[in-house]
Nucleic acid binder design. Structure first.
Lengths: 256, 256
DNA sequence: CGTGCAATTGATCCATTTCAAGGGCCGTGG
DNA sequence: CCACGGCCCTTGAAATGGATCAATTGCACG
């Protein structure tokens, strides 16, 4: 899938865009592509930012570091994700954004976004949807407070599966998971050691196959059930998101 | 403080509204006041909602219940807070909203909000600010994943202090905290038993005085420092919100 | 060939949970 | 007026999920 269609693909999860709107998005995202190396910051806490960023490839994350060094990953930013849609209202960021892998992204001036939203109500709605979805995801992450280690990691894997699939970045039951166990730990609020042991537990139960940064989920429905995951909070279009997943799961369950 | 000025007071934390805008808000919030009894649901998960709600008095919360009964409080809704600004985009809620105490609120039709935002860019910005602030708060709550019980509860108390003060609901160092320890547990992801013991620890360290649903924080700066709380994520106007607090912090740091 | 980082394993420790029970307060009903 | 049940807070003792500390392996890279 061409990189320049990824925003359209992402927003398409909410509204059906017409060719005209597709063209507008394509133009918007044909700016000079920027790159950041793995493990470098894209925006640092406290910095004023003036642009909206659209991620084209690679993984990034929002994170905050506490004074004593603990780091918490607040969200994963995947291809097709926007960030800092906000800061034409709030002028500075209260957390940082860092690249986990090499990433490509484009920067879009806020006034162009504002213009687009004013001209195209449907695109405006799509942007709102994107923002509200991040909020919804953030809420789901706070649910981790009452989840066990097993559930936290399982939920993370499920979420990533559905989000990546929505932009065409899964291969069947598999997807690239280019993050370390340390980063999984930072995202879930666990210790790397404990993440490791929990992964082994999930492996031994046959729920996942994780090897060389590729995650294979033999039976997504089984995993969902084991960790009480439900994808509704992602607000993906049902037709695309759930049906084939549950179908796939059913097939696997039958064949396995 | 008059209840009908509370939204203006809240939004004033971000932009200075002129008398005209104050009047508009006053008209908007003069709808029939609705009431919900303590411990009842205002909106239930999955229900479609068509209105924006503004809370006038009492405490409510967003929460989600997992299949096995665990309940997680996702946010506290205080007087002056809006909820469901979202759902003119997302049509149904993925969590519930419940009253913790008797609450009063007004319902505002979405088209009136849309109209207002179209006519008054400054109000539109203020609404955006409100929404982005909730997102920011939600991020801060996910930070609890890497915080200890002591820090979680302390952070909660600090957040509530600053938020309540921003709408004039603190009395000096004190404020009404009309929730049970069980609810604190649900908000922080801890056990009621452990919340109880942690509260006693905070009391014994002289950080809080909590009696008969009134919380007294003798030295807010000391508490902030003890639990690594910083109010920036609330995006309150600095003049009103943080200056006195950070000044206090500096004093304590020097004297301690 | 060393250096560094990610994954793994073992042993121990501790924060938090779980289970269980008692006390205070309050509204209700006999 | 007192007895009762219900809810909230409190306390104790025991169990455990997850943290901490420490060390080993494997692999990629200069």
């Amino acid at each position: 899938m061409a990189i320049d269609g990824i925003l359209a693909k992402r927003l398409d999860n909410f509204v059906s865009l017409d060719p005209d709107e597709h063209a507008l998005l394509a133009r918007l995202t044909s700016e000079r592509v920027r790159r950041s190396a793995a493990r470098t910051d894209i925006v640092r806490e406290g910095e004023p930012t003036h642009v909206l960023r659209l991620f084209l490839s690679g993984w990034a994350c929002r994170y905050r570091t506490l004074e004593d060094g603990r780091r918490q990953i607040l969200a994963f930013l995947l291809p097709g994700d926007l960030c800092d849609l906000n800061n034409y209202v709030l002028s500075e960021l209260d957390h940082s954004i860092g690249a986990l892998t090499p990433v490509q992204y484009v920067e879009i001036q806020h006034d162009r976004v504002a213009q687009l939203m004013a001209d195209r109500p449907r695109l405006a709605q799509a942007f709102w949807w994107h923002m509200l979805t991040s909020l919804s995801i953030q809420r789901e992450w706070t649910l981790n407070l009452s989840r066990s280690a097993f559930e936290r990691i399982g939920n993370l894997f499920c979420e990533l599966f559905f989000r990546l699939r929505a932009v065409g970045l899964t291969q069947g039951r598999r997807y690239d998971l280019p993050i370390t166990q340390i980063e999984m730990a930072e995202a879930t609020g666990l210790t790397p050691v404990h993440v490791n042991r929990t992964l082994q537990e999930m492996r031994s139960e046959g729920l996942i196959i994780l090897k060389e940064r590729v995650l294979d989920i033999p039976d997504i429905a089984a995993l969902q059930q084991a960790v009480l995951f439900s994808p509704t909070y992602l607000h993906l279009r049902l037709a695309a998101a759930s049906s084939s997943a549950t179908m796939g799961a059913r097939q696997v369950a039958e064949s396995g």
